[in-house]
C-alpha cells in the first residue's frame, strides 16, 4: 500500500474556491491557482477540484482553470463537475487533469463509467458518492451542489458503489453528507462497510475536524482522507498533520 494521502478538496463556484456547511451557504475561500499552489507547497498529496454547481446547472466544468492548475502544480489532481460524456472527459484529461471524478452524471447514465474506463483506464475514473444516513442504512444523493435540486435517489450506497466499480471505476470518494463541514470526525463504520464491498482505493470525506480524525480514517483502512474546512480555515496545517500521523505509525510522504 502506498503512503496514505492527505487530500484538500477545493469546491469551485464561478471560478472561485468556496466552502459551505452541509452543502449550503457557500462563502468565498480564495483564488484557485493561489490555493492549489499553497497546498502543493504545504505537502498535500493530491488535490480535488469540484465545480459544485456544474451538474445542477446542466453544464460541464470550465477547462480554463483545469489548464491553469495543471500548468502550475506538480502533484496529481482530480477534476469534477458535470462531466457527462466520454469526449468531455477526454478534453478534461487533455487539459491536464489526472483523474476525473464522476458523481451525478453516473447516476443519470451509469454506462458513462464504462466508456471512460475503457478509453482512459480505471486509474483515472473516480466515483464520487454523496451518501446520507437514513433509517439505519445509507442512501445516495444526487445534485448535491444545488440545495434546490438535491434529492435522495433511493439507491443503497453499498449497491451503487459495487455496481459502479464493476463498471470500471478505479477509486471511490465516499462523502458522508451528514458529516460534511461539521468537524466531528469521518463516519468510520460507513467507510469500513464501503471498503469491505470493494477492492479499489476508498477516500474518506466529510467530517474531518482534528488530526485524530485522519488517524482514525487511516486505521480503518482508507487510502486517503479528504477535507476542506480544516485546511481552508487553517485549523490544521498539513506539515503538522503529517508529522502527527507519522508518529502514529502511518506511512506519510514527507
Amino acid at each position: 500500500m502506498p503512503a496514505r494521502r492527505i487530500i484538500p478538496c477545493l469546491d469551485v463556484k464561478d471560478g472561485r474556491v468556496v466552502k459551505g456547511v452541509r452543502f449550503r451557504d457557500h462563502r468565498d475561500a480564495g483564488d484557485i491557482v493561489e490555493q492549489a499552489t499553497r497546498y502543493r507547497d504545504e505537502g498535500a498529496d493530491e488535490l480535488v477540484f469540484y465545480d459544485i454547481s456544474a451538474s445542477a446547472e446542466d453544464r460541464t466544468l470550465d477547462l480554463d482553470w483545469v489548464r491553469e492548475i495543471a500548468r502550475v502544480i506538480d502533484i496529481p489532481f482530480t477534476a469534477a463537475g458535470g462531466l457527462r460524456t466520454r469526449d468531455q472527459g477526454a478534453a478534461c484529461l487533455d487539459a491536464g487533469a489526472d483523474k476525473l471524478s464522476i458523481n451525478s452524471p453516473a447516476l443519470e447514465r451509469p454506462e458513462l463509467i464504462e466508456e471512460l474506463a475503457r478509453d482512459f483506464g480505471s486509474q483515472c475514473v473516480v466515483l464520487g458518492v454523496d451518501s446520507y444516513q437514513r433509517d439505519g442504512d445509507y442512501f445516495v444523493h444526487q445534485y448535491t451542489g444545488s440545495p434546490d435540486k438535491s434529492r435522495d435517489t433511493g439507491l443503497r450506497t453499498l449497491d451503487w458503489v459495487r455496481d459502479v466499480c464493476d463498471r470500471g471505476a478505479g477509486e471511490v470518494v465516499l462523502n458522508c453528507m451528514s458529516r460534511d463541514g461539521v468537524r466531528s470526525g469521518y463516519d468510520l463504520d460507513h467507510v469500513a462497510a464501503v471498503m469491505g464491498a470493494l477492492t479499489v482505493p476508498v477516500i474518506a470525506s466529510g467530517g474531518a475536524g482534528a488530526p485524530e480524525h485522519f488517524r482514525d480514517a487511516f486505521v480503518a483502512g482508507a487510502s486517503g482522507a479528504l477535507a476542506a474546512t480544516v485546511f481552508h480555515d487553517r485549523i490544521i496545517a498539513i506539515p503538522d498533520l503529517k508529522e502527527y500521523l507519522a508518529k502514529c505509525g502511518i506511512e506519510m510522504r514527507r
Partner: peptide
C-alpha cells in the same frame, strides 16, 4: 487495493 494509486 488495486489500482495501485498514490505515492510509493
Amino acid at each position: 487495493p488495486v489500482p495501485h494509486m498514490g505515492w510509493s
